[in-house]
Design a protein around this nucleic acid. Sequence first.
DNA 1: GTCTATAGACAGATAGAC
DNA 2: GTCTATCTGTCTATAGAC
Lengths: 190, 190
Amino acid sequence: MYEPVARTDRRRATEARIVDSAREQFAARGFDRTTIRAVAMSADVDPAPVMQYFGSKRGLFTRALQAAPAPGAAGDGAALLYQLLAPLGVKLGGMPDGTLAMLRSMLTDPASADHAREALGRQISGIGGALPAGEDGADGELRAALIVTTMPGMTIGRQLLGLDVLRDAPAERIGALLRPAIAALTEPPD
Amino acid sequence: MYEPVARTDRRRATEARIVDSAREQFAARGFDRTTIRAVAMSADVDPAPVMQYFGSKRGLFTRALQAAPAPGAAGDGAALLYQLLAPLGVKLGGMPDGTLAMLRSMLTDPASADHAREALGRQISGIGGALPAGEDGADGELRAALIVTTMPGMTIGRQLLGLDVLRDAPAERIGALLRPAIAALTEPPD
DNA sequence: GTCTATAGACAGATAGAC
DNA sequence: GTCTATCTGTCTATAGAC
């Protein structure tokens, strides 16, 4: 009761350190191969408190993902162009660790797959709604899906697999090359 | 010595059944979450012979991948267009299980990552060499990489994550929409 | 040759000492 | 509140019985 603030602060700092370490490891190794023990050691704490704080390994994973802003679903036309490029990871030269953690685990961990499906689905709906519909009934959602899936494709090649050609290329160059391709998908087929 | 053929045939048939089950499971769950036990049960054999036949879990995984033809590196111009579309999984409406197994595991299993890196690298080199170089020195390899990484991106969305929009769309439609986008990447920037 | 039984390792989670 | 020690379960891999 005499130093509640200091104690709470220490606790918060420790939690933050654990979450940071966890996010790095989840991004680097995926959910399954990341161990509570390794995270604790990296954060310089013991494994027991980690369980105490977050309840379970999955709880820690969820917290690590939450720290990174989930790709939103801005709806208006102005946000469209931003949505086309920013999520591609081109602007910042790389996706944040939280997103990488989700991408890394989405193919092997069902919960991560659900998370990814929902996040990508939101992006597809947002972009698809803003795309002009083709006269032949071609709905924009499919074109939006193809645009959106370009993000994980390139991010996987560039950051997760580390393909030399993609990793060495400056972000602006990639953006410049990608822009006309995305534009082609934006316009309805004739 | 009296029925060597029949015995060998039985053995071959059993091995084939095991490899088929393994390929399905590796494609569905990835390397880590696939267990020898589950594969054996699915193939209706006991786990012990599986180890006897393939030496290790990794050996079984390798065999399961080998069964599927690795994306080749055909070099001439005629193969280029085929390389652009066939690996996209559009033609056949889906990638074979062996490829899905590799894709599923490449983000969490280092050996699978190496395999994927090499396979994609071959495709990039093959296509990049055939692409016309830009006058500003923009090399074709980067554009080839962006073309090639479209494959895992779309396949992940369509088959591994199972995004509704992509899964429900007919393959020809996807191909038709993708063609102009790929064409935009094929031509050097001005 | 095929299968039962087990060894050995390592994970997540928990209970109790300090 | 923090950590040591342990429990429980699951896996790969191996050795030995039939």
